[in-house]
Design a protein around this nucleic acid. Structure first.
Length: 423
RNA sequence: GGAGAGAUGGCCGAGUAGGUCGAAGGCGGUCGCCUGCUAAGCGAUUACACGGGCUUAAACUCGUGUCGCGGGUUCGAAUCCCGCUCUCUCCGCCA
């Protein structure tokens, strides 16, 4: 959510930012509502001030056993008028809030202007795909022939885009989770295991709601939602709090299952682990002072990359252009891992600086010193990494001509085996 | 799930036969004083949001709102009424 004072003071700048994003929102109506709101506020507050003053006068008169009936009658009328104005005010504030909640973040000045993923520049590339003297199989074929992934039965017990991991497949998923959590905690992130279900307010806080309700799994009969990412519970942990400046930066890592309805994505990546309604992810979340957030974004991205380096998986980093960025983000790097069967790089992590966009929605503030006024923190997060896609990348990049898969060095202590063969 | 108790400022804790209470007192914090150092002591100060005025801005100042959340009664609500949420205790159930 943007600062209404900032919007008021810089309407042209905000409008330009919205246009660059391709957001079809006009601020004119909003600014007109803002003006009306303040006019009503001035009137109603004046009336309330009068009522407060006269009410004290009534108290004084009654104590002195004098007649106050005239004033009471007068204030009754004032009270009626206040009630009417308060209702008008609530209506207009509701409308404004509704607009404000649907306005995306303003892109950082360093974000390239563009309309689609085709305009995302590559920042750097790490590693080179291993040459293969055979045709690489897609991970779903490998998973099925090794009997470690079961898409058929996953669909039977739940539905499409739900997968069962078996044997060393389950072990691989768990090993990757542990490798990531151990690595990140060693590098200064405090581990969190959050609830996988959150309330509506948390979903508002990080920006999934109200705009993207159709992408979420809500729990019928309740106001609860399955989390689409650990970002939601972990970021909202400090909602409505004022932190001490010396607590910052806060670095958290968190494993969670993630649940996404992604109604609009049907038809893409229908096979394999790439696009599931339920997947596992280790998330990195940071709370920083505003002046540090962009340096922290670089470090966070590097921490996510570090996992791919440990696994020796080739990847590249791209900057999302203005037209391709997520709703809440001010700047996003995507990390894309090489998938041989796709003959391309696919997203495995998304690292974003939200600046104060989420902090304002969720009410996460800090004091730079004990006497300072509270300011909004900056929040950042990134996948560190998506587990299912990492499994896919490991299977595909480490496959051999005979259909077996070599276990990457870094995972062997967790896996207990060097090679995955049909059992 | 059933029964009961509770929710006040950073923390503890007063305040309910409605009236000058944003809220006593204590602790903690900050600033100043004092003091070989430390400890102790003395004084002052110490919520947040929104809006008006002033201003480049801040500071300042005025006002409004906030005593879990939302609504109601009333000239006036921390105090009365209704709904909700959360916490605690006991019972039941349960991994």
């Amino acid at each position: 959510m943007l600062d209404i004072k900032f919007v008021r003071a810089n309407p042209a700048l905000v409008q330009e930012a919205l246009d660059k994003r391709g957001a079809k929102i006009s601020l004119d109506d909003f600014l007109a509502m803002d003006q009306k709101r303040r006019a009503i506020l001035v009137e109603v507050e004046g009336l309330k001030a009068e009522r407060n003053r006269v009410s004290q006068e009534i108290a004084r008169l009654k104590k002195a056993k004098e007649d106050a009936e005239n004033l009471v009658v007068e204030m009754r009328a004032v009270g009626d008028r206040i009630k009417v104005l308060d209702e008008e005010l609530a209506a207009i504030e509701g409308e404004m809030e509704n607009v404000l909640y649907y306005i995306p973040n303003i892109p950082h000045a360093s974000v390239p202007v563009g309309v689609s993923e085709a305009d995302n520049p590559v920042v750097r590339t790490w590693g080179t795909p291993k040459p293969m003297d055979f045709t690489p199989k897609p991970h779903w074929d490998l998973g099925e022939s090794l009997d470690i992934l079961d898409f058929q039965r996953g669909a039977k017990i739940t539905g499409a885009r739900f997968t069962i991991y078996k044997g060393l497949g389950a072990r691989l998923e768990r090993s990757i989770i542990n490798l990531m959590l151990n690595t990140h905690t060693d590098r200064g992130y405090r581990e969190i295991l959050p609830p996988f279900i959150v309330n509506r307010q948390s979903m508002m806080g990080t920006g999934q709601l109200p705009k993207f309700a159709e992408d979420m799994f809500g729990i019928s009969g309740t106001e609860y939602f399955l989390i689409p990412t650990a970002e939601v519970p972990v970021t909202n942990m400090y909602g409505s709090e004022i932190l001490d400046g010396d607590q910052l930066p806060i670095h958290h890592c968190a494993y969670s299952a993630c649940f996404r309805a992604e109604a609009g994505a049907a038809g893409r990546d229908t096979r394999g682990l790439i696009r599931q309604h339920q997947f596992n992810k280790v998330e990195l979340v940071k709370f920083t002072k505003p002046e540090d957030s962009y340096a922290e974004l670089e470090k966070l991205t590097a921490d996510a990359e570090h996992i791919l380096q440990l696994l020796e998986l080739p990847y590249r980093v791209i900057t999302l252009c203005t037209g391709d960025m997520g709703f809440s983000s001010a700047k996003t790097y995507d990390i894309e891992v090489w998938l041989p069967s796709f003959e391309t790089y696919r997203e495995i992590s998304s690292c974003s600086n939200f600046e104060d966009f989420q902090a304002r929605r969720a009410g996460i503030r800090y004091r730079s010193n004990p006497k300072a006024k509270p300011e909004f923190v900056h929040t950042l997060n990134g996948s560190g990494l998506a587990i299912g896609r990492t499994v896919a990348a490991v299977l595909e990049n480490y496959q051999q001509a005979d259909g077996s898969v070599i276990v990457p060095e870094a995972l062997r202590p967790y896996m207990g085996v060097d090679v995955i063969r049909p059992e």
